[in-house]
Each structure stands twice: as structure tokens, then as C-alpha cells.
């Protein structure tokens, strides 16, 4: 699981926005990340797999593993749907 190249996170007035770095790419609707999304995106950039993503959430939040895994799966599904993943 790897994020496609060409997207970066930018902080805009307190919101985290995913923006293309490649000028040829258009915004396909605006994507913003909440605090959890930011943690997961950053971990993915560092090459995390699903287990590492779950671990990243467990390290940060007081949730059980099943809940964390559910959150990770939903996030990854969202990324896939928006075309952010290289399969």
C-alpha cells in the first residue's frame, strides 16, 4: 500500500488540505483531513502498512484495536475511492 506521488498536505487556516503538486492534476473536489486522517496520511508517507497504521492510532488515542482497525480500513477505502493509492 503506497500513496501516489504528487499529493501533499497543506495547512490552510487550521484545516489540513490535500493538494496536488503536479500542476497537470486538477482538484477532483476538495479533500480535507481531520486530526486522525493527518496522522494516518503522514504514517503512509513513511511507508506504513495496515498494522503500522493501527499502531499509529493506538499510540495516539485511547481506543481498542478493533475500533482503530475499523477506522484505518475506512480511511484506506476513502483514499482508494479518491484515487490516492497505488495498488
Amino acid at each position: 500500500m503506497k500513496l501516489k506521488n504528487g499529493f501533499v498536505l497543506r495547512e490552510v487556516a487550521g484545516s489540513t488540505v490535500v493538494v496536488p503538486t503536479d500542476a497537470a492534476l486538477n482538484l477532483n473536489g476538495m479533500i480535507t483531513l481531520n486530526e486522525t486522517g493527518k496522522i494516518l496520511w503522514t504514517a503512509l508517507t513513511d511507508g506504513a502498512d495496515t498494522d503500522a497504521l493501527v499502531a499509529a492510532l493506538l499510540a495516539k488515542y485511547e481506543v481498542d484495536e478493533a475500533t482503530a482497525r475499523e477506522g484505518v480500513n475506512a480511511f484506506v477505502d476513502g483514499l482508494r475511492k479518491h484515487g490516492f493509492l497505488e495498488e
Binding site: R10, T21, D22, L25
Partner: peptide
Amino acid sequence: GGPNWAKIA
């Protein structure tokens, strides 16, 4: 032609 989204942000 593409805008520069990072600069816009």
C-alpha cells in the same frame, strides 16, 4: 495549464 495548488494554499 494547471494552477499551482501548493502556492495557492
